[in-house]
Simulated scan of single mutants.
Amino acid sequence: MGGFEEKKETCGTICLKYLLFSFNFLFWLAGGVVMAVGVWALVEKSDYISLLSSKTYAASAYILVLAGAIVMVTGVLGCCATFKEQRRLLRVYFVLLLCIFLLEILAGVLAYIYYQQLNDELKQNLKKTMTENYNKTNHEHITRAVDKLQQEFKCCGSNSSADWAESTYIRSGAKGRKVPDSCCKTITNLCGERDHPSNIYKVEGGCITKLENFILDHLKIIGAVGIGVACVQVTVTFSQLMLSCCYRSVDDP
Protein backbone atom coordinates (compact mmCIF):
# COMPACT_ATOMS: atom_id res chain seq x y z
CA MET A 1 0.00 0.00 0.00
CA GLY A 2 2.84 2.36 0.91
CA GLY A 3 4.61 1.55 -2.37
CA PHE A 4 1.46 2.42 -4.32
CA GLU A 5 1.16 5.82 -2.58
CA GLU A 6 4.86 6.56 -3.26
CA LYS A 7 4.41 5.72 -6.95
CA LYS A 8 1.27 7.85 -7.13
CA GLU A 9 3.09 10.82 -5.58
CA THR A 10 6.01 10.45 -8.00
CA CYS A 11 3.71 10.43 -11.05
CA GLY A 12 1.92 13.53 -9.75
CA THR A 13 5.22 15.35 -9.28
CA ILE A 14 6.31 14.49 -12.82
CA CYS A 15 3.02 15.77 -14.25
CA LEU A 16 3.38 19.02 -12.30
CA LYS A 17 6.92 19.46 -13.59
CA TYR A 18 5.80 19.14 -17.19
CA LEU A 19 2.90 21.52 -16.61
CA LEU A 20 5.35 24.09 -15.23
CA PHE A 21 7.67 23.47 -18.16
CA SER A 22 4.76 24.13 -20.53
CA PHE A 23 3.95 27.39 -18.76
CA ASN A 24 7.58 28.48 -19.00
CA PHE A 25 7.60 27.68 -22.70
CA LEU A 26 4.51 29.88 -23.12
CA PHE A 27 6.38 32.63 -21.27
CA TRP A 28 9.31 32.25 -23.61
CA LEU A 29 7.00 32.57 -26.63
CA ALA A 30 5.28 35.60 -25.09
CA GLY A 31 8.69 37.21 -24.56
CA GLY A 32 9.51 36.63 -28.22
CA VAL A 33 6.24 38.28 -29.27
CA VAL A 34 6.82 41.29 -27.01
CA MET A 35 10.39 41.76 -28.21
CA ALA A 36 9.36 41.34 -31.86
CA VAL A 37 6.68 44.03 -31.53
CA GLY A 38 9.18 46.39 -29.91
CA VAL A 39 11.74 45.83 -32.67
CA TRP A 40 9.04 46.21 -35.33
CA ALA A 41 7.91 49.51 -33.82
CA LEU A 42 11.48 50.84 -33.94
CA VAL A 43 12.51 49.49 -37.34
CA GLU A 44 9.27 49.98 -39.27
CA LYS A 45 9.49 53.56 -40.59
CA SER A 46 12.19 54.28 -37.99
CA ASP A 47 13.17 57.47 -39.84
CA TYR A 48 9.90 59.06 -38.74
CA ILE A 49 10.96 58.95 -35.08
CA SER A 50 13.39 61.79 -35.87
CA LEU A 51 10.39 63.99 -36.77
CA LEU A 52 8.94 63.60 -33.26
CA SER A 53 10.13 65.99 -30.58
CA SER A 54 9.12 63.64 -27.77
CA LYS A 55 11.03 60.42 -27.09
CA THR A 56 8.00 58.68 -25.56
CA TYR A 57 7.23 56.60 -28.64
CA ALA A 58 10.80 55.30 -28.89
CA ALA A 59 10.95 54.75 -25.12
CA SER A 60 7.80 52.58 -25.20
CA ALA A 61 9.26 50.45 -27.99
CA TYR A 62 12.65 50.09 -26.26
CA ILE A 63 10.94 49.03 -23.02
CA LEU A 64 9.08 46.30 -24.92
CA VAL A 65 12.33 45.07 -26.47
CA LEU A 66 14.01 44.98 -23.04
CA ALA A 67 11.04 43.29 -21.37
CA GLY A 68 10.79 40.71 -24.15
CA ALA A 69 14.48 39.85 -23.96
CA ILE A 70 14.31 39.44 -20.16
CA VAL A 71 11.19 37.27 -20.45
CA MET A 72 12.95 34.92 -22.86
CA VAL A 73 15.96 34.57 -20.56
CA THR A 74 13.70 34.19 -17.52
CA GLY A 75 11.71 31.48 -19.29
CA VAL A 76 14.87 29.40 -19.62
CA LEU A 77 15.61 30.08 -15.93
CA GLY A 78 12.12 28.88 -15.01
CA CYS A 79 12.60 25.64 -16.94
CA CYS A 80 15.88 24.97 -15.10
CA ALA A 81 14.30 25.77 -11.75
CA THR A 82 11.40 23.43 -12.46
CA PHE A 83 13.44 20.39 -13.44
CA LYS A 84 16.00 20.88 -10.68
CA GLU A 85 13.15 21.42 -8.20
CA GLN A 86 14.93 24.40 -6.65
CA ARG A 87 12.18 26.39 -4.96
CA ARG A 88 14.57 29.20 -4.04
CA LEU A 89 15.46 29.61 -7.69
CA LEU A 90 11.76 29.67 -8.49
CA ARG A 91 11.29 32.54 -6.03
CA VAL A 92 13.96 34.53 -7.88
CA TYR A 93 12.16 33.63 -11.10
CA PHE A 94 8.85 35.01 -9.83
CA VAL A 95 10.51 38.25 -8.67
CA LEU A 96 11.97 38.71 -12.16
CA LEU A 97 8.54 38.11 -13.69
CA LEU A 98 7.09 40.80 -11.46
CA CYS A 99 9.70 43.27 -12.75
CA ILE A 100 8.91 42.27 -16.33
CA PHE A 101 5.19 42.73 -15.68
CA LEU A 102 5.84 46.26 -14.42
CA LEU A 103 7.98 47.06 -17.49
CA GLU A 104 5.26 45.90 -19.85
CA ILE A 105 2.59 47.86 -18.02
CA LEU A 106 4.87 50.93 -18.16
CA ALA A 107 5.25 50.54 -21.94
CA GLY A 108 1.48 50.27 -22.33
CA VAL A 109 0.80 53.30 -20.14
CA LEU A 110 3.43 55.42 -21.93
CA ALA A 111 1.88 54.46 -25.29
CA TYR A 112 -1.58 55.46 -24.03
CA ILE A 113 -0.37 58.81 -22.64
CA TYR A 114 1.51 59.63 -25.84
CA TYR A 115 -1.57 58.62 -27.83
CA GLN A 116 -3.41 61.51 -26.17
CA GLN A 117 -0.60 64.03 -26.74
CA LEU A 118 0.47 63.17 -30.28
CA ASN A 119 -1.86 65.52 -32.16
CA ASP A 120 -0.75 68.59 -30.18
CA GLU A 121 2.91 67.66 -30.53
CA LEU A 122 2.72 67.28 -34.31
CA LYS A 123 0.80 70.54 -34.71
CA GLN A 124 3.42 72.40 -32.69
CA ASN A 125 6.59 70.83 -34.05
CA LEU A 126 6.26 69.06 -37.40
CA LYS A 127 5.98 72.20 -39.54
CA LYS A 128 8.87 73.83 -37.68
CA THR A 129 11.04 70.73 -38.07
CA MET A 130 10.34 70.48 -41.80
CA THR A 131 10.74 74.15 -42.69
CA GLU A 132 13.76 74.94 -40.49
CA ASN A 133 15.86 71.77 -40.71
CA TYR A 134 15.25 70.37 -44.20
CA ASN A 135 18.42 70.11 -46.30
CA LYS A 136 20.59 71.56 -43.53
CA THR A 137 24.06 70.31 -42.69
CA ASN A 138 24.04 67.99 -39.65
CA HIS A 139 20.31 67.39 -40.18
CA GLU A 140 20.58 64.84 -42.97
CA HIS A 141 18.40 62.40 -41.00
CA ILE A 142 15.61 65.00 -40.99
CA THR A 143 15.94 65.48 -44.74
CA ARG A 144 15.77 61.72 -45.35
CA ALA A 145 12.77 61.37 -43.04
CA VAL A 146 10.86 64.22 -44.72
CA ASP A 147 11.56 62.92 -48.22
CA LYS A 148 10.48 59.43 -47.21
CA LEU A 149 7.37 60.77 -45.50
CA GLN A 150 6.25 62.78 -48.52
CA GLN A 151 6.89 59.96 -50.98
CA GLU A 152 5.42 57.08 -48.98
CA PHE A 153 2.34 58.95 -47.82
CA LYS A 154 1.92 60.91 -51.07
CA CYS A 155 1.74 64.28 -49.34
CA CYS A 156 3.57 67.61 -49.43
CA GLY A 157 4.28 69.91 -46.50
CA SER A 158 3.09 69.67 -42.93
CA ASN A 159 -0.39 71.13 -43.45
CA SER A 160 -0.16 71.80 -47.20
CA SER A 161 2.40 72.35 -49.95
CA ALA A 162 2.19 76.10 -49.18
CA ASP A 163 4.19 75.45 -45.98
CA TRP A 164 7.34 75.09 -48.05
CA ALA A 165 7.19 78.76 -49.10
CA GLU A 166 8.17 79.59 -45.51
CA SER A 167 11.06 77.13 -45.36
CA THR A 168 14.71 78.06 -45.13
CA TYR A 169 15.43 75.64 -47.97
CA ILE A 170 13.10 77.30 -50.51
CA ARG A 171 13.94 80.84 -49.40
CA SER A 172 17.64 80.14 -49.90
CA GLY A 173 16.99 79.50 -53.58
CA ALA A 174 16.77 75.72 -53.86
CA LYS A 175 17.74 76.08 -57.55
CA GLY A 176 14.34 77.52 -58.41
CA ARG A 177 12.29 74.85 -56.67
CA LYS A 178 9.00 75.81 -55.04
CA VAL A 179 8.84 72.54 -53.12
CA PRO A 180 11.33 69.69 -52.56
CA ASP A 181 11.50 67.14 -55.34
CA SER A 182 10.07 64.53 -52.96
CA CYS A 183 6.70 66.27 -53.27
CA CYS A 184 6.51 65.25 -56.92
CA LYS A 185 4.31 62.41 -58.12
CA THR A 186 7.13 61.34 -60.40
CA ILE A 187 10.53 62.35 -59.06
CA THR A 188 12.99 63.86 -61.50
CA ASN A 189 15.75 66.40 -60.91
CA LEU A 190 14.26 69.89 -60.29
CA CYS A 191 10.70 68.60 -60.64
CA GLY A 192 9.89 70.76 -57.60
CA GLU A 193 10.07 73.87 -59.78
CA ARG A 194 6.43 73.32 -60.71
CA ASP A 195 3.90 73.14 -57.85
CA HIS A 196 0.81 72.46 -59.94
CA PRO A 197 -1.51 69.69 -58.56
CA SER A 198 -0.82 67.64 -61.68
CA ASN A 199 2.86 67.51 -60.69
CA ILE A 200 2.94 67.42 -56.87
CA TYR A 201 0.85 65.87 -54.11
CA LYS A 202 -1.71 68.31 -52.75
CA VAL A 203 -3.46 66.27 -50.10
CA GLU A 204 -5.97 67.86 -47.76
CA GLY A 205 -4.46 67.94 -44.26
CA GLY A 206 -0.92 67.57 -45.58
CA CYS A 207 1.57 65.10 -44.12
CA ILE A 208 0.63 65.82 -40.51
CA THR A 209 -2.61 63.84 -40.75
CA LYS A 210 -0.93 60.91 -42.49
CA LEU A 211 1.94 60.75 -39.96
CA GLU A 212 -0.42 61.08 -37.01
CA ASN A 213 -2.58 58.17 -38.19
CA PHE A 214 0.53 56.07 -38.81
CA ILE A 215 2.00 56.70 -35.33
CA LEU A 216 -1.40 56.21 -33.65
CA ASP A 217 -1.78 52.79 -35.27
CA HIS A 218 1.65 51.80 -33.94
CA LEU A 219 0.87 53.14 -30.46
CA LYS A 220 -2.33 51.08 -30.33
CA ILE A 221 -0.33 47.93 -31.05
CA ILE A 222 2.41 48.81 -28.54
CA GLY A 223 -0.15 49.55 -25.82
CA ALA A 224 -2.26 46.46 -26.52
CA VAL A 225 0.74 44.12 -26.60
CA GLY A 226 2.34 45.63 -23.50
CA ILE A 227 -0.75 45.52 -21.30
CA GLY A 228 -2.36 42.44 -22.90
CA VAL A 229 0.69 40.18 -22.65
CA ALA A 230 1.37 41.45 -19.12
CA CYS A 231 -2.14 40.39 -18.03
CA VAL A 232 -1.71 36.97 -19.63
CA GLN A 233 1.64 36.59 -17.87
CA VAL A 234 0.07 37.40 -14.51
CA THR A 235 -2.48 34.63 -15.01
CA VAL A 236 0.18 32.13 -16.06
CA THR A 237 2.50 33.19 -13.22
CA PHE A 238 -0.25 32.68 -10.66
CA SER A 239 -0.89 29.20 -12.08
CA GLN A 240 2.83 28.43 -11.92
CA LEU A 241 3.01 29.61 -8.31
CA MET A 242 0.13 27.37 -7.30
CA LEU A 243 1.65 24.37 -9.08
CA SER A 244 5.12 24.98 -7.66
CA CYS A 245 3.67 24.81 -4.16
CA CYS A 246 2.25 21.34 -4.90
CA TYR A 247 5.52 19.51 -4.85
CA ARG A 248 8.37 19.60 -2.38
CA SER A 249 11.77 20.82 -3.42
CA VAL A 250 14.67 18.43 -3.01
CA ASP A 251 16.56 20.99 -0.96
CA ASP A 252 13.73 21.38 1.60
CA PRO A 253 14.02 19.46 4.87
Results as ranks from 00 to 15, higher is better:
residue 244 S to P: 09
residue 28 W to I: 08
residue 112 Y to W: 11
residue 13 T to L: 04
residue 105 I to K: 01
residue 185 K to F: 13
residue 251 D to P: 01
residue 184 C to T: 09
residue 152 E to N: 14
residue 115 Y to V: 01
residue 152 E to W: 03
residue 121 E to Q: 11
residue 21 F to Q: 03
residue 30 A to I: 10
residue 221 I to P: 02
residue 208 I to T: 07
residue 183 C to N: 12
residue 6 E to K: 14
residue 164 W to D: 01
residue 173 G to T: 04
residue 19 L to V: 14
residue 32 G to Y: 06
residue 237 T to Q: 06
residue 139 H to Q: 13
residue 86 Q to T: 04
residue 150 Q to N: 10
residue 152 E to P: 06
residue 149 L to Y: 00
residue 216 L to Y: 04
residue 176 G to A: 14
residue 112 Y to A: 12
residue 94 F to K: 01
residue 149 L to W: 01
residue 157 G to L: 08
residue 149 L to R: 04
residue 112 Y to K: 11
residue 19 L to G: 11
residue 75 G to H: 12
residue 239 S to I: 14
residue 60 S to M: 12
residue 98 L to S: 08
residue 122 L to G: 00
residue 36 A to M: 08
residue 133 N to Y: 09
residue 209 T to C: 02
residue 97 L to Q: 05
residue 214 F to S: 07
residue 225 V to C: 01
residue 36 A to I: 02
residue 207 C to P: 10
residue 212 E to L: 11
residue 60 S to I: 09
residue 91 R to I: 03
residue 206 G to D: 05
residue 161 S to W: 01
residue 103 L to S: 02
residue 31 G to F: 08
residue 241 L to W: 08
residue 222 I to N: 02
residue 57 Y to W: 15
residue 120 D to Q: 10
residue 144 R to C: 05
residue 243 L to T: 06
residue 142 I to N: 02
residue 190 L to P: 09
residue 110 L to S: 00
residue 45 K to G: 05
residue 132 E to T: 12
residue 111 A to E: 03
residue 96 L to G: 07
residue 21 F to K: 04
residue 132 E to Q: 15
residue 5 E to N: 13
residue 228 G to I: 09
residue 124 Q to C: 04
residue 203 V to G: 01
residue 138 N to S: 10
residue 89 L to N: 00
residue 92 V to K: 05
residue 44 E to S: 15
residue 156 C to V: 09
residue 201 Y to P: 00
residue 21 F to I: 11
residue 182 S to Y: 04
residue 183 C to D: 08
residue 10 T to E: 15
residue 237 T to G: 15
residue 43 V to C: 07
residue 241 L to Q: 05
residue 86 Q to C: 08
residue 157 G to Y: 05
residue 75 G to W: 02
residue 35 M to Y: 00
residue 45 K to T: 06
residue 184 C to S: 08
residue 179 V to E: 02
residue 225 V to G: 07
residue 53 S to T: 15
residue 250 V to K: 09
